[in-house]
């Protein structure tokens, strides 16, 4: 038991078993080094695209409700009565 767990009044053996169990679980829960690298590299792929802010502004600027891309008749009989 380290100082971090100083407030706990558990039997020493219980404490030890719990720490061991938690440490085993933590290994399984951690992000793999490969995944960490993949996430890191993906950031630069996205950045080299048009840039996060550009895409963000584009998506924020969309108003799907006002869009006439899909004709109204396409929604007839669906669960989107406001569009019909």
């Amino acid at each position: 038991m380290d100082n971090e767990n100083a407030g706990i009044l558990l039997p020493v053996e219980t404490d030890r078993r719990f720490d061991q169990l938690l440490a085993d679980w933590a290994v399984h829960a951690r992000l793999s080094p490969e995944k960490e690298i993949e996430i890191y590299e993906r950031i630069f792929v996205v950045e080299e695209d048009l840039g996060y802010d550009w895409w963000r502004q584009l998506v924020d600027g969309f108003s799907f409700k006002a869009s006439n891309v899909v004709p109204k008749f396409a929604f007839k009989g669906t669960l989107l009565p406001s569009l019909v």
Partner: peptide, 9 residues
Amino acid sequence: HDVFLRIWN
């Protein structure tokens, strides 16, 4: 990924 993309920006 999203968090670090925001940090990068």
